[in-house]
Amino acid sequence: MLNAIIVMTALALVLGAALGYAAVHFKVEGNPLVEQIDAILPQTQCGQCGFPGCLPYAEAIAAGEAEINLCPPGGDEGARKLADLLGHEFKPLAAEHAVEKPRAVALIDEQTCIGCTLCIQACPVDAIVGSAKQMHTVISDLCTGCELCLPPCPVDCIIMEPLAETVSNWKWKYPVTAIRKVA
């Protein structure tokens, strides 16, 4: 009985020590900056910045390979937060990404839709349902308004419908007053 307890304890101790040593010795340094940047990005995964998603864009910013003003869904507000985080000068959205549109969701004209599934494949958030030769429709709660479904549509039956601000979706605006430095 005592043997059993001693042996199991010894086994647990040895394995625990080995794991503890490995956890310290083989620790992988994740870049915390990437996570912070990624937390600011809107996670629409729309690819309008030229990177295949928000995390790759965050990695590129952290490595200093990308400007902070390439993200239209994040808008000026997002660029300002990134500037604060990184200690860069704030830049307005880059010219080719400049048009800041009101938040919109895609809407499929179901009469025109031919059921080609091309927009389903393009949607980064799986907000379009439908199958081949059946009409498709957009789940507007999931749609991030990234407009990636517009170019592949062969019959141009997708329109972007701006979302009116209502009591249920209104959010506090990020304060735009610049903070003055005292002394």
Binding site: A18, L19, A22, A23, F26, K27, V28
Partner: peptide, 11 residues
């Protein structure tokens, strides 16, 4: 399993 994962993650 845990050890393998740690080592592979690193190496």
């Amino acid at each position: 399993v845990q050890l393998t994962e740690l080592v592979i993650h690193k190496t």
